[in-house]
């Protein structure tokens, strides 16, 4: 635990000594706001809730989260500091968790900073704050899943641009697989089990049910196991790279 904390703190301090954190948070706030107000029709809906706000999170995360994740390992490989990190007395799992938690905590901070939305909606009406809380939680876990994917892919390369593009693409697949459009493509010929399996892998479907205020065990298990799986893959990739 101690080592994980130390690695996470070092990683986080790196965000704040460069403009990275600032740029990310500003863009995140600007985009979530813009989408909610202009595309989602936050006011026009005439409803006191934050659906218009949360609806766009998967699509924003699609490129914002890989932008955070891309540097986690690729940068260390590029600058050679990975040799330092992996020869310190920490296990690979500790290093992977420390880095992941730092990035996840950071996206958590970005999410918390959207609180003016919550205040606005409470001033304008009487929203169901329970639904908003579960939506925030859902969004946070979805970001975690995107991050775990991005971190694992970042460990495969020393090129951050490649890490970004591949991670975005993989996240895109995980998001898209729940759209009717995609599922219809399979409906004609694939067995029902497969379609259900594809749909059940989708961020959208699970996130959607969470933003309706229902915390289903299924959704929780989905996000947690997705994160666990990709972090495990991340550890494996780092270990395999040692074999050269």
């Amino acid at each position: 635990m101690r080592n994980i904390r130390i690695i996470a703190l070092r990683e986080i301090s790196g965000y704040f000594t460069t403009p990275l954190a600032f740029v990310f948070i500003v863009i995140f706030l600007a985009l979530t706001g813009a989408f909610a107000f202009y595309v989602g029709g936050f006011f026009e809906r005439g409803q006191a809730d934050l659906r218009a706000f949360f609806e766009f999170h998967p699509w924003l995360f699609l490129f914002l989260v890989p932008a955070i994740a891309m540097r986690l390992w690729a940068e260390e490989r590029k600058t050679g500091t990975i040799e330092l990190l992996l020869t310190l007395p920490v296990s690979t799992t500790e290093a992977v968790l420390g880095k992941f938690l730092a990035a996840w905590g950071f996206t958590g901070v970005a999410l918390v900073l959207t609180f003016p939305m919550w205040i606005t909606v409470n001033v304008l009406g009487t929203p169901d704050n329970g639904v908003i809380a579960t939506s925030y939680l859902g969004s946070f876990f979805m970001a975690g899943a995107f991050l775990a994917i991005g971190a694992c892919i970042s460990a495969l390369t020393k090129n951050q641009v490649i890490a970004f593009i591949v991670a975005s693409a993989v996240c895109f697949l995980f998001t898209m697989s729940g759209l009717e459009m995609v599922l219809n493509f399979f409906r004609g010929w694939a067995p029902e089990v497969l379609i259900d399996a594809i749909a059940s892998m989708s961020f959208l479907i699970h996130f959607d049910s969470v933003t309706k205020g229902v915390i289903d065990l299924k959704d929780a298990v989905y996000f947690v196991s997705l994160i666990a799986f990709w972090l495990f893959a991340n550890v494996t990739v780092v270990e395999l790279k040692k074999a050269g």
């Binding site: 600058t79 050679g80 500091t81 330092l84 310190l88 007395p89 920490v90």
Partner: peptide, 21 residues
Amino acid sequence: PVKVKSRIGYLPERGPSYGDM
């Protein structure tokens, strides 16, 4: 590995360190 690493001091080639620290 961790026991070994805690007993070694290692300076990798070109002495990499975190540049923004």
